[in-house]
Design a protein around this nucleic acid. Sequence first.
DNA 1: TATCTGACCATTTTGTTTAAAAGGTCAAAG
DNA 2: CTTTGACCTTTTAAACAAAATGGTCAGATA
Lengths: 213, 213
Amino acid sequence: MQQEEQNQETHGKIEVILQAAQRRLGLYGYEKTTMKEIADDISMSKAALYYYFTDKDAIFKAVVEREQKEFSALIEKKIAELDNPEEMVKVYIDQRMRYFREFMNLSKFRSTEPEQVKPLLKELFFRFRLEEQKLLVKILKIGNSSGQFHCENEELYADLFLNIVKGLRFSLIQQKPYIELAPEELEVLVNAFHDFTTLFIRGLKYNESKYYK
Amino acid sequence: MQQEEQNQETHGKIEVILQAAQRRLGLYGYEKTTMKEIADDISMSKAALYYYFTDKDAIFKAVVEREQKEFSALIEKKIAELDNPEEMVKVYIDQRMRYFREFMNLSKFRSTEPEQVKPLLKELFFRFRLEEQKLLVKILKIGNSSGQFHCENEELYADLFLNIVKGLRFSLIQQKPYIELAPEELEVLVNAFHDFTTLFIRGLKYNESKYYK
DNA sequence: TATCTGACCATTTTGTTTAAAAGGTCAAAG
DNA sequence: CTTTGACCTTTTAAACAAAATGGTCAGATA
């Protein structure tokens, strides 16, 4: 919206636009969602969308940012309720999984566009990744200071953890043109995440000094 | 070759064909390598290739199978020289990495064809994966019986390990149209593999009973 | 003034047609 | 037993027109 002063209806309209965009984005992905479709969905003219948003990217950026913030808030809240770092990791992976399947149909970005992810999204995902990393580092540090974990380099392991989680998704969901969460595939993924988390936590708990080699 | 009885030169010719195919395959991938090019490379007519191989797939299947067997033989030999299972895992990951970058330009299969991997290759990769899995299970069992590892389910962890290795590749090498091993990217990958292996081994060595929680 | 629209533009995507190149076959020659 | 050139059928690539898309703007609406 290019005007500074806004009518009380403006926020409502923006919300309506974002919801329509989000629905389309989730169903068909970025490329297969047109401005006209969004406009028609909410009985607006296409031009009106450009009154509230500068361009298509701005709309989808807003959608993605909102979903990301939603997840971050949720996960932070969930974790704040816990005190055991091991539990925190487990909850994190569990929630991340849900997020991925429920909200993150945004992954269709990649599948629709064969190769290059839009720079716009690259930046968004990058920032999101940084937040995830920060949260994980925090958890690892809690674990270290409570003596449950023995992790020399929290940043490194947080990074590794996130790369593996991302990689397992890639690896197990054979990247298809359409991203559909077939229940059986999802179960495989859930199990892999679970097993990996167990292993990861064991790796963190492992204390060299307790072993003679 | 459709004849049962073969002239001593036949094997030589097949070898020449396979080498030409392998070179082309490594450089340009499956789709971008034509039968005519292979034939021209070795100063043969295209039709002659069909005397030795039933079709294009047969040639590339032979190439891939040969490279896979080459790797399997090498890795089995290297591992047989060791007695420490921890070392075995490390050597395995190290050799697998080399194999990936040096011989496995076959990965270009995937990059050239946007989405679906040829069924032919799917089967080959699947069989190869089974062999890798078998080898890893063997290593894990050695570790278990020597008391160094405490791994309840060897198959499961071998599978997980291989999925993660595959996933890390996907995850870190942003899948590009061309697969070029930029030294810096390779280093990132090597480091990730190293860190993961460390973590994995710790996870295997971790013994619940030694910890009171 | 704040919100919205239809007509309009430039560029990209999509369809369709055509020519070239691809994989593959075969009778016949060496 | 090998090899070939001519030939076949199917796939891919080039070229071009038609449609659709993101985006703009003067002006209507209220």
